[in-house]
């Protein structure tokens, strides 16, 4: 009896010891040297693995940064300047602060403004719809409304508004990783500089049709009239192929163009409404009765995660102190 037990214990221990020795040597032989700084940098990164930096996941990004001599081409859109500063500290390199950005949806073609002339019945994907035809409306440039941008967002920062059928960016969640920009087949989403209190002024239209054609398809299309270009005191607006574009870096948020636009294609977001009224009381399109036009529901971008809980709109004393 005891012999059996003894035999079992000895033989199993022997097998275990042999295996341990083999494992030790194998581990030694196949050891891969890895720069310990990669782990350190990886720790700092937000571990979102969104690919917004252009590398396959956070670890790939960390490896690339450790190898690189200069950090200027690298930027983690999720962690922002804070993270990059920490990384620079670990690696002993310098890094310049970059302006934080936010995704902006440049289309206001809700059913009210843009008539649906047919109905799409295929798989629910913008990429498939756009490979098939120009979309449910007469506008072949705008939002297709099937939510590919929502599907790719890793941060719950974008959702489809059921009423307008347009995606809405939640500024506080948006990290500007750019996934939605890449997913949108019509490239209507743009990363723009983030301003104080999430204020923004942009042309919410990307169509390149001539004015008449554009207007027929969508009431709030940019018709390429160039009024905004003329009124802009900072030369921030350019006209390209019948569509205006406001350079966020040059724009000083003066809102002159908003008042000038005949189709309401230029949107102002998160501005106090009172001022709008006093500044341009005679302009019919920014009437007090329709402040909705400039607010979250209509626009496509809002400053609060839950729009229905926000009072009328974020005002000066809003807690929205993102930057």
């Amino acid at each position: 009896m005891s012999a059996t037990i003894l035999f079992t214990i000895i033989s199993l221990s022997a097998i275990g010891a042999t295996a341990a020795i083999i494992l030790y040597f194998v581990a030694q032989k196949f050891k891969v040297y890895e720069d310990p700084r990669i782990d350190q940098v990886d720790e700092i990164l937000p571990a979102a693995n969104c690919g917004g930096c252009g590398y396959p996941g956070c670890r790939g990004f960390a490896e690339a940064m450790v190898k690189a001599d200069d950090l200027s081409p690298f930027y983690c859109p999720v962690g922002g300047n804070e993270t990059m500063a920490q990384v620079a500290e670990v690696l002993g390199k310098a890094v310049e602060a970059k302006d934080p950005q936010v995704a902006v949806v440049r289309c206001s073609g809700s059913p009210a403004h843009r008539e649906r002339i047919n109905s799409y019945d295929g798989a629910s994907s913008c990429a498939i719809s756009s490979s098939l035809y120009s979309g449910e409306t007469g506008c072949q440039f705008g939002c297709l409304g099937l939510g590919d941008c929502v599907d790719v967002c890793d941060f719950d920062a974008i959702y489809m508004d059921e009423e307008t059928g347009l995606p809405v960016v939640i500024d506080d969640n948006c990290t500007a990783c750019g996934a939605c920009v890449k997913a949108c087949p019509n490239v209507i989403i743009e990363l723009r500089k983030k301003n104080k209190k999430d204020r923004k002024i942009f042309v919410s239209c990307v169509n390149h049709d001539k004015g008449g054609v554009a207007k027929k398809a969508c009431k709030v299309a940019c018709i390429g009239c160039s009024k905004c270009v003329k009124v802009c005191p900072f030369d921030a607006i350019t006209m390209d192929n019948f569509c205006a574009f406001i350079d966020a870096n040059k724009c000083k948020l003066c809102r002159k163009c908003v008042a000038e636009c005949p189709t309401n294609a230029i949107l102002e977001i998160n501005f106090p409404p009172k001022k709008v009224r006093t500044e341009t009381p005679e302009k019919p399109k920014v009437e007090a009765s329709k402040p909705v036009r400039t607010s979250a529901e209509k626009a496509g971008t809002i400053g609060e995660a839950k729009p229905e809980e926000t009072p009328a709109r974020p005002t000066g004393e809003n807690k929205n102190e993102t930057k």
Partner: peptide, 12 residues
Amino acid sequence: LPLLDYIRLGKS
């Protein structure tokens, strides 16, 4: 299922 829709997308 919209099999071909997605296969065509994958193919392109």
